[in-house]
Amino acid sequence: MAANKTQATAASVEAYFDERASEAQRPDCEALVALLSRLTGEPAVLWGPSIVGFGRYRYRYESGREGEMCLAGFAVRGKELVVYVDAESEAQQARLATLGKHRIGKSCLYVKRLADLDLAVLEALVAGSIAETRRRYG
């Protein structure tokens, strides 16, 4: 079975921000680093070429595929920031309803700027995601 392409690297998170984040995004990136580091108790590490990740967990799917991924993370994607969250539960859906201006994919929370969000709700959303990932994968 092929190895997961997204793995923790020794690349510089600061260099990633210098390359990808706009001047307007930089303070939001630093705020997300502070928040996710505080919630996980782990420093920022670049996973693959584009995910700023915090902590790690091992997963194994019923298919037999297994690997390691960051417990929480985000990325700069053009004009948006993407925060990776597990938001499938009813409680997480309720949080999303009060979060502020965003769009959501399966596990991608897209925001243009943190000023558009209720930061207490964002913190609860990320904390809920971390708790669910730990519950599911140990």
Score class of each variant (00 low, 15 high):
residue 1 M to P: 11
residue 69 M to W: 15
residue 32 L to E: 00
residue 81 L to Y: 12
residue 4 N to T: 11
residue 107 S to F: 10
residue 106 K to T: 06
residue 110 Y to K: 03
residue 113 R to K: 14
residue 30 E to G: 00
residue 93 Q to W: 07
residue 44 A to Q: 07
residue 77 R to W: 13
residue 104 I to F: 14
residue 21 A to I: 06
residue 33 V to L: 14
residue 103 R to N: 12
residue 61 Y to I: 03
residue 42 E to G: 10
residue 56 R to S: 15
residue 71 L to E: 08
residue 90 E to T: 10
residue 42 E to T: 09
residue 108 C to G: 11
residue 99 L to Y: 01
residue 47 W to D: 06
residue 88 E to R: 14
residue 114 L to P: 12
residue 103 R to V: 07
residue 99 L to S: 10
residue 43 P to R: 13
residue 126 V to H: 06
residue 131 A to F: 00
residue 94 A to Q: 05
residue 54 F to R: 01
residue 69 M to C: 15
residue 101 K to N: 11
residue 38 R to Q: 14
residue 89 S to E: 10
residue 56 R to C: 03
residue 46 L to F: 10
residue 71 L to H: 06
residue 126 V to N: 05
residue 102 H to C: 09
residue 19 E to T: 15
residue 6 T to P: 09
residue 64 G to M: 09
residue 11 A to Q: 15
residue 96 L to P: 02
residue 78 G to A: 06
residue 94 A to R: 06
residue 7 Q to S: 11
residue 100 G to D: 03
residue 96 L to W: 04
residue 25 Q to H: 04
residue 129 S to N: 07
residue 58 R to E: 15
residue 10 A to H: 05
residue 52 V to D: 04
residue 10 A to M: 08
residue 92 Q to L: 13
residue 30 E to D: 13
residue 12 S to G: 01
residue 60 R to D: 10
residue 56 R to M: 06
residue 40 T to H: 00
residue 137 Y to I: 00
residue 122 L to P: 00
residue 43 P to F: 11
residue 133 T to E: 01
residue 92 Q to V: 04
residue 119 L to S: 05
residue 50 S to P: 03
residue 124 A to Y: 03
residue 51 I to A: 08
residue 53 G to P: 04
residue 116 D to A: 13
residue 37 S to R: 09
residue 38 R to F: 07
